[in-house]
Design a protein around this nucleic acid. Sequence first.
DNA 1: TCACATAGGAAGTGATCGTTTCCTTACTGG
DNA 2: CCAGTAAGGAAACGATCACTTCCTATGTGA
Lengths: 199, 199
Amino acid sequence: MTRRTQQERREATVAKLVDATISAIVELGYHRTSVQAICGRAGLSVGAMFRQFDSRLDLVVAAVEEVVARHLAHFREHLAALAAEEDVITASLRFLRQATGSPLTHVLREVLIAARTEQELRSRVRPTIHRYYSAIFADAEHAGVLAPLPPEHRENVVHMMVHLFSGEALITGVDPRPEQAEAQLQLARRMLLTLAGTD
Amino acid sequence: MTRRTQQERREATVAKLVDATISAIVELGYHRTSVQAICGRAGLSVGAMFRQFDSRLDLVVAAVEEVVARHLAHFREHLAALAAEEDVITASLRFLRQATGSPLTHVLREVLIAARTEQELRSRVRPTIHRYYSAIFADAEHAGVLAPLPPEHRENVVHMMVHLFSGEALITGVDPRPEQAEAQLQLARRMLLTLAGTD
DNA sequence: TCACATAGGAAGTGATCGTTTCCTTACTGG
DNA sequence: CCAGTAAGGAAACGATCACTTCCTATGTGA
């Protein structure tokens, strides 16, 4: 048996629980992600979970923060390469659409929907979501992928594209239309290019 | 006591149950809309509900169909007036955003999210959602509000705008940003106008 | 009018939910 | 090495879930 400090043990189980919560929400959805489903995936008992988190809600909030952190890290990983692309806009749109449709991002949509009708969840995740929106623009700006666009519209354009792909991901889960999605990406590209050209 | 036929009685309670399901999902969200919450709102017993619907899922599917029917009716009500507006695009965008953010539409997003991870719900609502997407474009086309746009892009533009406002409605429930939303609507307007002009 | 069929309600079913209690195991400071 | 503390697990808590049973009330066809 490897000897570990209390802090190491604690941090390892917290990490296992957060990971299990994320994958449970991805596979089961927010409302079917029970404490027992989480602990089963984590290989831990229910009692162990409640020693580290006061409630299921606390664990979900921690999972959302982890998802946002991973998602932003994923952005930063690829932004430099995107800025160097010949057609920055097309490459960035394609990357953003892929990222916004990823399993990780489904967690955010699950929680956002649930938060609409659950007051405490809403107030707990609001700062994290707000930070996410600010960071996603700041990172894109810093990497230079927004250079073709007029400065005063950059933030709104980024958030519009996030909304566009989020809305697309909503129906893709039920009735995917790959050809339309590709055509719509090309249309978005044209719109952004004309916006880049007119100012 | 007013005398009613069995069919009238039956249809009245089905209507009450569907109405109650819609408002319950609006207020509680999909996963907290229990059979007892529905029947409480409908002023009916649980037994009465299970006489008309074999399962909770059947009732939810019926509610989704009703929501789509009402939403499309709401479109058709206003499309004629929109087509007569001076600035058709701006008026239509504003109307679509308002409609896509309405309580009724929250029901669709709740169910779409749940359907991603619930196989039977997904296969049951898919045809309805598909019809909804087709009808929303067909109605807009028929009313003439898409006249400024090149024909080959009209359907994709309509669906892109639905996605844009759906994605916006997702975060609006947690962290509303009214000024950005207005600026983004103006940006969308500009993009559609240039698209209308270039072809 | 009356046997029959259908609709609605009351009270349960077992299963599962989030959470707690209590006990055992693992680490810590001296 | 050992008393004290912190972490993890087993089992149970009441509440609530979707759903069933069974009874009463109401409409139907003859």
